[in-house]
């Protein structure tokens, strides 16, 4: 299947089919999820309305983490099999993943602000997400850190793979640090009893944001492929 998809024209054609469905799912998910989350679901009895941020925060956290893993996988394909689309995919995933990591941090801070009374607290999960955000920043800096743009592709891929392997260790060390320093930890979104009324907005926001993420990645890949194609045509024009 991967060889089949490796042909850029074929990929672009297939990708074209996915764009409208993704747009619909994203729009539906985000609109319905927002309405459910903001209007029709209950406020938490102890956290008040701030809990509604969870509907963005939790899916964002999931997307940030899963996109880093996807980045690692794409990097593996690029390094080992020199699959040409893998590099394009990685370059599309990285900014989107970084963006969701950032969103997770912001919504996490906003969620905790009324409870903690301050704008930031070194909650275990937020701290891990911050380090993951640094991983993304490092990747983007390396991928774009060379005068010749394509020169950064392979080092960045190696970095991503090393990062994926190190991530469990980093997470463990932050948790370890957390248990010993015991900072405030209110964001027990897994631990708190999730009312069934909260499940629907969470689920729809999840679907909406996931679709939005995939949409961003595919659109960016199409853009990058288009640019590459344009460059190649320009070369041929020049040569003839």
């Amino acid at each position: 299947m991967f060889d089949y998809l490796a042909n850029p024209t074929r990929f672009m054609r297939l990708a074209d089919y996915t764009v409208w469905p993704l747009r619909l799912i994203a729009a539906a998910g985000l609109l319905i999820g927002s309405w459910l989350g903001l209007a029709s679901s209950p406020a938490d009895y102890q956290q008040g309305d701030a809990v509604r941020l969870m509907y963005v925060h939790v899916p964002s956290a999931w997307l940030a983490l899963s996109s880093y893993l996807m980045l690692g996988l794409a990097s593996l394909f690029f390094i080992v099999w020199r699959h040409p689309l893998a590099d394009i995919a990685a370059r599309a995933i990285a900014p989107a993943g970084a963006g969701f990591a950032f969103l997770t941090l912001v919504t996490g801070a906003l969620w905790g602000a009324p409870i903690w009374g301050t704008w930031w607290v070194w909650d275990g999960r937020l701290t891990s997400m911050l380090v993951l955000f640094f991983f993304f920043i490092g990747y983007l800096a390396l991928a774009n850190g060379f005068d010749r743009p394509e020169r950064g592709a392979r080092p960045a891929a190696i970095l991503a793979m090393v990062g994926v392997l190190n991530l469990p260790i980093v997470k463990f060390s932050v948790d370890w640090w957390n248990t010993l320093h015991q900072p405030a930890s209110i964001l027990r979104s897994g631990g708190m009893a999730i009312d069934s009324a909260m499940l629907w907005p969470l689920f729809t926001m999840f679907a909406g944001l996931q679709a939005f993420f995939l949409l961003m990645v595919i659109q960016r890949m199409r853009l990058l492929l288009g640019q590459a194609r344009l460059a190649r045509l320009a070369d041929q024009q020049e040569a003839s």
Binding site: V131, F134, F135, I137, G138, A141, L142, G145, F146, D147, R151, G152, P155, L159, V162, G163, N166, I169, V170, F172, S173, V174
Partner: peptide, 20 residues
Amino acid sequence: LGARRGAILAAILVLPLSVP
């Protein structure tokens, strides 16, 4: 190797990994 701003870049890559 061969990157612009190599020192800062190397630092940005190494520091997050050195958290543990």
